[in-house]
Amino acid sequence: MRHLLSTADLSYAQANKILDTAKEMARISEGPVKKLPTLRGRTIVNLFFEDSTRTRISFEAAAKRLSADVINFSAKGSSASKGESLKDTAQTLQAMGADAVILRHSASGAAQRLASSHWTTGSVINAGDGTHEHPTQALLDAFTIRKHLRGGTGDLRGLTVAIVGDILHSRVARSNIHLLNLLGAQVILVAPPTLIPLGAEKWPVQISYDLDAVLPLVDAVMMLRVQQERMNDFFFPTAREYSHYYGLNSDRLKLMKPNSLIMHPGPMNRGLEITAESADSARSVILEQVTNGVSVRMAVLYLLLAGAPNEGGDLI
């Protein structure tokens, strides 16, 4: 495998390999010297057609800890809006000798499109494509759950994870559904029916419209960001009604099992999908997700880039 485009492409062994490697990376990140020479001389491009400071700096930190050269390319406006096209941009970066392109794009499938084109020969890492996938986010989520509930090794068999909120538009949800299933966890999607994608009943998940009924069952709950503008498309009547039924507040906190985790991919809408009390509670691992994101991204970069060119990939 030369690219990381979707968690659906990962095998069980590959997913575990990434998590195990990330564990080593985390160990180094906790040590006194956070810099490794591993990817010295490699050029990694952060190609962001969509703003996401968090994801960009996480990848940037990961690449720099492995001593790669990092170029940040923020291409405002896609070809749709008559800006620079994906093709031209990719070819430009190819001409500069990029070994890997980390792509964030508002169009679903953009990373796959880039990987299957001849526009670049480097590895493509999907850092979020439209409403499709965000594989490194799911990997860091799995890493966080494994660390807390599985002692940092093995898979997630026997655990139940709820993903709550705007499933319809969430790339984080899609990547998590594939990966959590692959690792043996049971997934419950919780949202108003308008925010559950059509055909989701065919996914390997349970679906519920009732957060209160689900919370006592779960080992971890992932709260998704709800965009205020969804209201204009009639997905739910008002922010207040949404919070009332699907917000994680202090009352709902009490419904959860003692050691269960509260997660959020960020950025949070405090007061909408999650209250400050929940976000800052002892069960919240939201900040740790950020830390783990760097380790997981280091692992992905290592596995995709460290081996001999065109040979890297035996292990992932």
Partner: peptide
């Protein structure tokens, strides 16, 4: 590293 297939950690 670049001369050999990828190694597992």
């Amino acid at each position: 590293l670049r001369l050999r297939p990828l190694r597992a950690l």
